[in-house]
Amino acid sequence: MSEKHVKKTADGTEEITVGTPEETAAEDLKETESPDDTAAKNKAAEDNKKGADSAKEDEKSGKSEKADAAIKDLVERAKLEAKKKDDQIADLTDRYKRTLAEYENFRKRTEKEKSDIYAYAVKDVLTKILPVADSFERGLAAVPDDEKDGAVAKGMEKIYKQFQKTLSDIGVKPIEAEGKPFDPNYHNAVMHVEDDSLGENVVAKDLQKGYTYKDTVIRHSMVQVAN
């Protein structure tokens, strides 16, 4: 259709120099008469009429130029639309890929966290139970000499031993601190003392036992450091 149009306009342009657009239109009608393309022919006829009309009004700029511009405009707009859609697709694809990657990372991290949760939970509960061990230690240390062999003191000792064994079976170990070189990864220094009998930066006293659970420190030793 557009071809025909273009042909016509081409002819029209040529024809204008020779004759009037009206004559051109009439001639073209004769040429393109095809029985199976009546609708197109009619449309074409209408277009020609319109073209003829506007050409009548617009003597300088021919129907051809206007049509040309109209087509160019349509094509440009179509191209712009397509580009807009392409951009949209690119943006959505990018966002989708990002979300997928983020999801993948999240999934991996959650899996790791899930397998760590047991260890975290145990660590958390143990940390809360440790003060009981502290009390046992302090209590037993405070028993006066004359009561040390008494039933209560002995009983306490047995219970404390059972407690220690239970902890050790779980994987909890006390941190050996006294006399060892101070290590901030295992010890928490709360006091400082000058003592010539000890080396430099050595743990002078273990004020509160520290404990490890498997490989991690669940409570640091509270220590007094010398020099």
Partner: peptide
């Protein structure tokens, strides 16, 4: 934390 734990010494 490690830095804090050795601050006193």
């Amino acid at each position: 934390e490690p830095a804090k734990r050795q601050a006193v010494t």
